[in-house]
Amino acid sequence: MKWPWQHTKEYPPFWEQYESAFAKAEQKPLAETRFIALDTETTGLDIKKDRILSIGAIAIKGDTITVSDNLELYVEQDHYDPKSTPIHGILKKGAYDKISAIEAIQRTLHFIGTDIIIGHHIGFDIAVINKMLQRHHLGKLKNKTLDTGTLYKRLQHPVNRMNMQQGYSLDQLSEALKIPLYDRHTASGDAMITAIAFIKICKRLAQNDTLKLKELFT
């Protein structure tokens, strides 16, 4: 029997599909695992209030990023904060092929599947996406995530780790890892930088022995 408060929601088929895939997902060796580097550009930094303007994501497998395996979405939003425009450069009525939020959700879920999501300060990106999902009465993302900021810290000697700033920006990370700057402050460009950073960090972490997937999460 069901308790009244245990009301089960009716989810649309695409969500059911997304969710159920996790049960069947199997773990592969690190070199064959598909990772998704992801970044969002938002109207601001307030998770409750601000909205996603664009999502950029690109797939990584082993040492290789395949350019065609990417996602680049511009989302229609009513909420708009002119203050953040100078950063991401997306104007409300910009000349982009914008899609509705629900379509963006469907395409994003389809693209990421059950793969591990990598991002720089990924917590924020996941939170805004979850908020968007919530507004459309969907559940939260179920993918595992990895933060390049956190991973990078592991490369540092424990002594230096203490001195590292709390927020290590993507610019600082690219400089430290000598990553050519792509389009900074576009979702796709930042996703690309994150992807290269991730490959570089993995290489360095695996310096002496072979790195295993689960070690990334420790």
Partner: peptide, 10 residues
């Protein structure tokens, strides 16, 4: 669809 990365490589 727009592909910024392809543009950068270009």
């Amino acid at each position: 669809m727009k592909n910024t990365i392809a543009y950068r490589i270009y």
